[in-house]
């Protein structure tokens, strides 16, 4: 029974949203709006709560055991202090919440993002080797793209950006489209399996 009810709810909403897609009737739009604007948002709010509880629980256990204690304390403090700042002074304009966001969160996130540049350099150094004809074609295409996306492409020859555009528009795009079609079909069949109830992983398993 515990599995049957979610399956019925899932099938009901799956079929309803599918049917609503094909209608512009005001009542269809109204129902669509209610599902998207109200039900989804309510569910989302509760899922966040689940995440926060789990996060705090795991980190408190870690603190108790003495594993990475300073980091875990900072994490737990962050979870409670930042919402508190938002609750007391709001989240607009020059509030302390925005100060924390702009001066702590933004630089920290940008730093992790910037690591990508270093990893691209090391991965290129290691990975782009002319091991075979195919690998050499890939290597040449990569070099053309790198040159064209910087200012030197225009300086060396007008043809380089044109060749790069050709690579992007034809060989690369056709491969990408083929993959996208495959993914689309995979998504379609998985979604159908979920709606008709033969895919039960999202319920935690088979029973």
């Amino acid at each position: 029974m515990a599995r049957k009810i979610p399956k019925i709810v899932c099938a009901l909403f799956g079929v309803t949203l599918f049917v609503l897609f094909f209608s512009q009737h005001p009542s269809a739009k109204s129902l669509n709006l209610a599902i998207l604007n109200e039900y989804f948002q309510i569910i989302f709010a509760f899922t966040l709560l689940v995440g926060v509880v789990s996060f705090v629980k795991i980190n408190l256990k870690g603190v108790e055991r003495g594993e990475d204690r300073p980091y875990r304390i900072v994490s737990i403090l962050g979870v409670f202090v930042v919402p508190l700042l938002a609750l007391i002074w709001g989240i607009k304009g020059d509030s302390p919440f925005m100060w924390v966001f702009e001066n702590i969160q933004v630089p920290m996130q940008a730093t992790v993002f910037a690591l990508l540049a270093f990893f691209v350099a090391s991965a290129s150094f290691r990975g782009f080797r002319a091991r075979s004809v195919q690998a050499t074609i890939l290597l040449v295409a990569a070099l053309i793209m790198l040159i064209s996306r910087s200012s030197i492409g225009d300086v060396i020859a007008d043809e380089i950006p044109q060749v790069a555009d050709w690579v992007r528009s034809y060989p690369s795009m056709s491969a990408r489209r083929a993959i996208l079609i495959g993914i689309g079909l995979g998504s379609l069949t998985t979604s159908l399996r979920v709606i008709i109830g033969i895919e039960r992983t999202w319920l935690g398993g088979d029973k």
Partner: peptide, 13 residues
């Protein structure tokens, strides 16, 4: 950075 990566690819090869 792009020129640097190109040089790295060449050195790697």
């Amino acid at each position: 950075a792009h020129v640097y990566v190109i040089i790295m690819i060449i050195i790697g090869n």
